[in-house]
Protein backbone atom coordinates (compact mmCIF):
# COMPACT_ATOMS: atom_id res chain seq x y z
CA UNK A 1 0.00 0.00 0.00
CA UNK A 2 1.24 3.48 -0.81
CA UNK A 3 -0.63 6.50 0.39
CA UNK A 4 0.68 9.85 -0.74
CA UNK A 5 -0.54 13.23 0.40
CA UNK A 6 0.71 16.66 -0.50
CA UNK A 7 -0.25 20.08 0.79
CA UNK A 8 1.16 21.72 -2.35
CA UNK A 9 -1.02 24.45 -3.80
CA UNK A 10 -0.01 24.86 -7.41
CA UNK A 11 -3.02 24.81 -9.74
CA UNK A 12 -0.90 24.61 -12.91
CA UNK A 13 1.11 21.61 -11.74
CA UNK A 14 -1.34 19.43 -9.81
CA UNK A 15 -2.64 16.84 -10.42
CA UNK A 16 -0.47 17.02 -13.53
CA UNK A 17 1.14 19.83 -15.49
CA UNK A 18 -1.24 21.92 -17.60
CA UNK A 19 0.55 25.20 -18.28
CA UNK A 20 0.22 25.18 -22.08
CA UNK A 21 -3.10 24.92 -23.85
CA UNK A 22 -4.68 25.22 -27.30
CA UNK A 23 -2.95 28.53 -28.02
CA UNK A 24 0.45 26.81 -28.04
CA UNK A 25 -0.85 23.92 -30.17
CA UNK A 26 -2.30 26.38 -32.69
CA UNK A 27 0.93 28.37 -32.75
CA UNK A 28 2.96 25.21 -33.41
CA UNK A 29 0.50 24.17 -36.12
CA UNK A 30 0.47 27.53 -37.92
CA UNK A 31 4.23 27.92 -37.47
CA UNK A 32 4.65 24.49 -39.05
CA UNK A 33 2.52 25.42 -42.08
CA UNK A 34 4.48 28.65 -42.56
CA UNK A 35 7.79 26.77 -42.25
CA UNK A 36 6.58 24.21 -44.77
CA UNK A 37 5.35 26.86 -47.21
CA UNK A 38 8.70 28.63 -47.06
CA UNK A 39 10.54 25.42 -47.93
CA UNK A 40 8.06 24.19 -50.56
CA UNK A 41 7.71 27.50 -52.40
CA UNK A 42 11.47 28.01 -52.17
CA UNK A 43 11.98 24.58 -53.66
CA UNK A 44 9.55 25.32 -56.50
CA UNK A 45 11.38 28.56 -57.24
CA UNK A 46 14.75 26.82 -57.33
CA UNK A 47 13.59 24.02 -59.63
CA UNK A 48 15.46 24.13 -62.87
CA UNK A 49 12.41 23.17 -64.91
CA UNK A 50 10.69 26.36 -63.91
CA UNK A 51 7.32 26.87 -65.50
CA UNK A 52 4.94 29.77 -65.10
CA UNK A 53 2.97 29.14 -61.89
CA UNK A 54 -0.80 29.43 -61.75
CA UNK A 55 -2.12 32.66 -60.28
CA UNK A 56 -3.23 30.87 -57.10
CA UNK A 57 0.22 29.32 -56.65
CA UNK A 58 1.89 32.70 -57.24
CA UNK A 59 -0.39 34.36 -54.67
CA UNK A 60 -0.13 31.60 -52.03
CA UNK A 61 3.12 32.80 -50.37
CA UNK A 62 1.16 35.90 -49.32
CA UNK A 63 -0.68 33.63 -46.87
CA UNK A 64 2.55 32.85 -45.00
CA UNK A 65 2.97 36.20 -43.20
CA UNK A 66 -0.75 36.20 -42.36
CA UNK A 67 -0.61 32.69 -40.88
CA UNK A 68 2.60 33.56 -39.05
CA UNK A 69 1.00 36.66 -37.53
CA UNK A 70 -1.99 34.59 -36.46
CA UNK A 71 0.30 32.02 -34.86
CA UNK A 72 2.27 34.67 -33.02
CA UNK A 73 -0.99 36.20 -31.83
CA UNK A 74 -1.92 32.85 -30.27
CA UNK A 75 1.54 32.67 -28.68
CA UNK A 76 1.05 36.18 -27.31
CA UNK A 77 -2.29 35.10 -25.83
CA UNK A 78 -0.49 32.33 -23.94
CA UNK A 79 1.90 34.73 -22.18
CA UNK A 80 0.94 35.48 -18.58
CA UNK A 81 2.89 38.76 -18.48
CA UNK A 82 2.14 40.21 -21.89
CA UNK A 83 3.65 43.63 -21.21
CA UNK A 84 7.07 41.98 -21.04
CA UNK A 85 6.76 40.34 -24.48
CA UNK A 86 9.53 42.51 -25.93
CA UNK A 87 11.93 41.01 -23.39
CA UNK A 88 12.34 38.11 -25.83
CA UNK A 89 14.30 40.49 -28.04
CA UNK A 90 16.54 42.11 -25.46
CA UNK A 91 18.71 39.03 -24.98
CA UNK A 92 19.78 35.90 -26.82
CA UNK A 93 20.10 32.75 -24.72
CA UNK A 94 21.93 30.14 -26.83
CA UNK A 95 20.82 27.22 -24.64
CA UNK A 96 17.14 28.19 -24.62
CA UNK A 97 15.11 26.78 -27.54
CA UNK A 98 12.46 29.44 -26.97
CA UNK A 99 15.08 32.16 -27.31
CA UNK A 100 16.22 30.61 -30.60
CA UNK A 101 12.59 30.49 -31.70
CA UNK A 102 11.99 34.15 -30.88
CA UNK A 103 14.96 35.24 -32.98
CA UNK A 104 14.17 32.80 -35.79
CA UNK A 105 10.67 34.29 -35.99
CA UNK A 106 12.21 37.74 -36.26
CA UNK A 107 14.28 36.57 -39.23
CA UNK A 108 11.39 34.67 -40.79
CA UNK A 109 9.11 37.71 -41.03
CA UNK A 110 11.10 39.78 -43.55
CA UNK A 111 12.07 36.63 -45.44
CA UNK A 112 8.46 35.46 -45.98
CA UNK A 113 7.48 38.97 -47.09
CA UNK A 114 10.41 39.13 -49.53
CA UNK A 115 9.62 35.66 -50.84
CA UNK A 116 5.96 36.53 -51.32
CA UNK A 117 7.02 39.68 -53.14
CA UNK A 118 9.20 37.74 -55.57
CA UNK A 119 6.47 35.22 -56.37
CA UNK A 120 3.30 37.33 -56.66
CA UNK A 121 2.19 38.17 -60.24
CA UNK A 122 3.76 41.28 -61.75
CA UNK A 123 0.45 43.17 -61.94
CA UNK A 124 -0.04 42.80 -58.17
CA UNK A 125 3.49 44.10 -57.54
CA UNK A 126 2.92 47.05 -59.87
CA UNK A 127 -0.39 47.91 -58.20
CA UNK A 128 1.23 47.91 -54.76
CA UNK A 129 4.17 50.01 -55.93
CA UNK A 130 1.82 52.51 -57.59
CA UNK A 131 -0.04 52.98 -54.30
CA UNK A 132 3.18 53.27 -52.30
CA UNK A 133 5.11 55.17 -54.96
CA UNK A 134 6.19 57.92 -52.59
CA UNK A 135 8.34 55.43 -50.67
CA UNK A 136 11.25 55.19 -53.11
CA UNK A 137 13.09 52.64 -51.02
CA UNK A 138 10.28 50.15 -51.65
CA UNK A 139 10.90 50.26 -55.40
CA UNK A 140 14.64 49.82 -54.79
CA UNK A 141 13.96 46.92 -52.43
CA UNK A 142 11.64 45.38 -54.99
CA UNK A 143 14.29 45.62 -57.72
CA UNK A 144 16.85 44.02 -55.43
CA UNK A 145 14.51 41.16 -54.44
CA UNK A 146 13.54 40.44 -58.05
CA UNK A 147 17.19 40.40 -59.11
CA UNK A 148 17.94 37.92 -56.30
CA UNK A 149 14.92 35.64 -56.51
CA UNK A 150 16.94 32.44 -56.17
CA UNK A 151 18.92 33.76 -53.20
CA UNK A 152 15.69 34.79 -51.49
CA UNK A 153 14.28 31.30 -52.14
CA UNK A 154 17.38 29.66 -50.67
CA UNK A 155 17.33 31.84 -47.53
CA UNK A 156 13.61 31.17 -47.26
CA UNK A 157 14.19 27.42 -47.30
CA UNK A 158 16.87 27.64 -44.61
CA UNK A 159 14.76 29.95 -42.40
CA UNK A 160 11.69 27.76 -42.94
CA UNK A 161 13.55 24.58 -42.03
CA UNK A 162 14.90 26.29 -38.89
CA UNK A 163 11.40 27.38 -37.91
CA UNK A 164 9.96 23.91 -38.54
CA UNK A 165 12.65 22.15 -36.51
CA UNK A 166 12.37 24.70 -33.72
CA UNK A 167 8.65 24.06 -33.24
CA UNK A 168 9.52 20.43 -32.44
CA UNK A 169 12.63 21.11 -30.37
CA UNK A 170 10.71 23.56 -28.20
CA UNK A 171 9.01 20.49 -26.76
CA UNK A 172 11.75 17.95 -27.50
CA UNK A 173 14.32 19.58 -25.22
CA UNK A 174 12.12 19.46 -22.12
CA UNK A 175 13.85 16.79 -20.05
CA UNK A 176 11.18 17.00 -17.38
CA UNK A 177 8.45 15.80 -19.77
CA UNK A 178 9.33 12.27 -20.88
CA UNK A 179 6.84 12.18 -23.77
CA UNK A 180 8.40 15.27 -25.34
CA UNK A 181 12.00 14.49 -24.51
CA UNK A 182 13.12 13.24 -27.93
CA UNK A 183 15.21 14.99 -30.58
CA UNK A 184 13.05 13.20 -33.19
CA UNK A 185 10.35 15.79 -32.51
CA UNK A 186 12.44 18.35 -34.44
CA UNK A 187 12.44 16.50 -37.80
CA UNK A 188 8.95 15.13 -37.09
CA UNK A 189 7.45 18.60 -36.70
CA UNK A 190 9.40 19.85 -39.72
CA UNK A 191 8.10 16.98 -41.87
CA UNK A 192 4.59 17.46 -40.55
CA UNK A 193 4.90 21.19 -41.29
CA UNK A 194 5.99 20.46 -44.86
CA UNK A 195 3.11 18.00 -45.28
CA UNK A 196 0.47 20.37 -43.86
CA UNK A 197 1.88 23.18 -46.01
CA UNK A 198 1.47 21.06 -49.15
CA UNK A 199 -2.05 20.16 -47.99
CA UNK A 200 -2.86 23.81 -47.31
CA UNK A 201 -1.70 24.73 -50.82
CA UNK A 202 -3.82 21.94 -52.29
CA UNK A 203 -6.94 23.66 -50.93
CA UNK A 204 -6.51 26.41 -53.54
CA UNK A 205 -7.29 26.49 -57.25
CA UNK A 206 -3.94 25.32 -58.56
CA UNK A 207 -3.21 23.93 -62.01
CA UNK A 208 -3.48 20.15 -62.51
CA UNK A 209 0.30 19.90 -62.87
CA UNK A 210 0.86 21.73 -59.59
CA UNK A 211 -1.77 19.59 -57.84
CA UNK A 212 -0.10 16.39 -59.02
CA UNK A 213 3.31 17.62 -57.94
CA UNK A 214 2.10 18.64 -54.47
CA UNK A 215 0.09 15.40 -54.13
CA UNK A 216 3.20 13.31 -54.83
CA UNK A 217 5.29 15.47 -52.50
CA UNK A 218 2.70 15.11 -49.73
CA UNK A 219 2.61 11.36 -50.17
CA UNK A 220 6.36 11.17 -49.68
CA UNK A 221 6.22 13.48 -46.68
CA UNK A 222 3.45 11.49 -45.00
CA UNK A 223 5.52 8.31 -45.48
CA UNK A 224 8.53 9.98 -43.84
CA UNK A 225 6.27 11.27 -41.06
CA UNK A 226 5.01 7.75 -40.36
CA UNK A 227 8.60 6.54 -40.10
CA UNK A 228 9.50 9.41 -37.74
CA UNK A 229 6.44 8.79 -35.53
CA UNK A 230 7.49 5.12 -35.35
CA UNK A 231 11.09 6.04 -34.48
CA UNK A 232 9.88 8.44 -31.79
CA UNK A 233 7.76 5.72 -30.23
CA UNK A 234 10.51 3.10 -30.53
CA UNK A 235 12.96 5.49 -28.85
CA UNK A 236 10.67 6.09 -25.90
CA UNK A 237 9.44 2.53 -25.53
CA UNK A 238 12.97 1.10 -25.40
CA UNK A 239 14.34 3.76 -23.05
CA UNK A 240 14.37 3.98 -19.27
CA UNK A 241 11.24 3.50 -17.18
CA UNK A 242 10.66 7.26 -17.30
CA UNK A 243 10.79 7.21 -21.12
CA UNK A 244 8.42 4.27 -21.26
CA UNK A 245 6.04 6.10 -18.94
CA UNK A 246 6.25 8.99 -21.39
CA UNK A 247 4.35 6.96 -23.94
CA UNK A 248 1.68 6.01 -21.46
CA UNK A 249 -0.63 8.87 -22.34
CA UNK A 250 -0.99 7.60 -25.93
CA UNK A 251 -0.74 3.89 -25.18
CA UNK A 252 -3.52 3.10 -22.78
CA UNK A 253 -3.68 6.62 -21.32
CA UNK A 254 -6.25 9.38 -21.85
CA UNK A 255 -4.99 10.41 -25.32
CA UNK A 256 -4.80 6.91 -26.81
CA UNK A 257 -7.97 7.05 -28.93
CA UNK A 258 -7.40 10.62 -30.06
CA UNK A 259 -3.81 9.92 -31.12
CA UNK A 260 -4.44 6.68 -33.01
CA UNK A 261 -7.69 7.81 -34.64
CA UNK A 262 -7.07 11.49 -35.38
CA UNK A 263 -3.30 11.54 -35.97
CA UNK A 264 -2.37 8.10 -37.28
CA UNK A 265 -5.55 6.85 -38.99
CA UNK A 266 -7.24 10.07 -40.14
CA UNK A 267 -4.21 12.33 -40.49
CA UNK A 268 -1.61 9.98 -41.95
CA UNK A 269 -2.75 6.57 -43.19
CA UNK A 270 -6.08 7.55 -44.81
CA UNK A 271 -4.72 10.53 -46.80
CA UNK A 272 -1.64 8.50 -47.76
CA UNK A 273 -3.92 5.79 -49.15
CA UNK A 274 -6.16 8.36 -50.85
CA UNK A 275 -3.18 10.10 -52.50
CA UNK A 276 -1.75 6.74 -53.58
CA UNK A 277 -5.11 5.86 -55.21
CA UNK A 278 -5.20 9.22 -56.97
CA UNK A 279 -1.71 8.72 -58.38
CA UNK A 280 -2.41 5.09 -59.29
CA UNK A 281 -5.55 6.02 -61.21
CA UNK A 282 -4.02 9.14 -62.70
CA UNK A 283 -6.59 11.47 -61.15
CA UNK A 284 -5.82 14.95 -59.89
CA UNK A 285 -5.48 15.14 -56.07
CA UNK A 286 -8.61 16.59 -54.49
CA UNK A 287 -9.20 18.51 -51.30
CA UNK A 288 -10.52 15.81 -48.96
CA UNK A 289 -7.11 14.18 -48.39
CA UNK A 290 -5.60 17.63 -47.88
CA UNK A 291 -8.20 18.47 -45.24
CA UNK A 292 -7.44 15.22 -43.42
CA UNK A 293 -3.72 16.01 -43.44
CA UNK A 294 -4.41 19.45 -41.97
CA UNK A 295 -6.70 18.00 -39.28
CA UNK A 296 -4.08 15.35 -38.49
CA UNK A 297 -1.31 17.96 -38.27
CA UNK A 298 -3.32 20.03 -35.80
CA UNK A 299 -4.27 16.92 -33.82
CA UNK A 300 -0.62 15.83 -33.63
CA UNK A 301 0.40 19.09 -32.03
CA UNK A 302 -2.70 19.36 -29.85
CA UNK A 303 -2.27 15.83 -28.46
CA UNK A 304 1.48 16.21 -27.96
CA UNK A 305 1.08 19.52 -26.14
CA UNK A 306 -1.56 18.12 -23.79
CA UNK A 307 -0.30 14.53 -23.64
CA UNK A 308 3.27 15.60 -22.86
CA UNK A 309 2.09 17.61 -19.90
CA UNK A 310 0.32 14.54 -18.63
CA UNK A 311 3.72 12.88 -18.23
CA UNK A 312 6.46 13.87 -15.82
CA UNK A 313 8.92 12.88 -13.16
CA UNK A 314 6.60 14.02 -10.39
CA UNK A 315 4.97 10.59 -10.20
CA UNK A 316 8.41 9.10 -9.77
CA UNK A 317 9.18 11.49 -6.95
CA UNK A 318 6.00 10.42 -5.25
CA UNK A 319 6.90 6.76 -5.46
CA UNK A 320 10.52 6.90 -4.31
Amino acid sequence: MQELTSTRLNPLVDPHLHVWHGEVALYLFLGGIVAGMMVVTGLLTLRKKHEEPSRAMAMLPLAAPILLSLGMFFLFLDLEHKLNALRFYLVFKPLSPMSWGSWILLVVYPVVILQAWTTVPGDVRDAVLRRLGRFAFLAKGSDWALANTRRVALVSMIAGASLGIYTGLLLGTMGARPMWNSAILGPLFLTSGLSTAAAFMLLYRLSDRERSLLGKLDMGLISVELILVSLWMIGLSTGSQISQDGLASIIGGPYTTAFWVLVVALGLITPLFAEWLEIKHGTVPGRSAALMVLAGGLALRWILVYGGQYTGWIESIALR
Binding site: V13, D78, E80, H81, K82, A176, W313
Partner: peptide
Protein backbone atom coordinates in the same frame (compact mmCIF):
# COMPACT_ATOMS: atom_id res chain seq x y z
CA UNK B 1 7.09 37.11 -19.85
CA UNK B 2 5.11 34.32 -18.18
CA UNK B 3 5.83 31.92 -21.06
CA UNK B 4 5.82 29.07 -18.49
CA UNK B 5 8.68 27.19 -20.15
CA UNK B 6 10.41 27.04 -16.76
CA UNK B 7 7.36 25.42 -15.16
CA UNK B 8 7.33 22.79 -17.89
CA UNK B 9 11.09 22.26 -17.50
CA UNK B 10 11.05 21.82 -13.71
CA UNK B 11 10.72 18.13 -12.82
Amino acid sequence: TGCKACIAACP
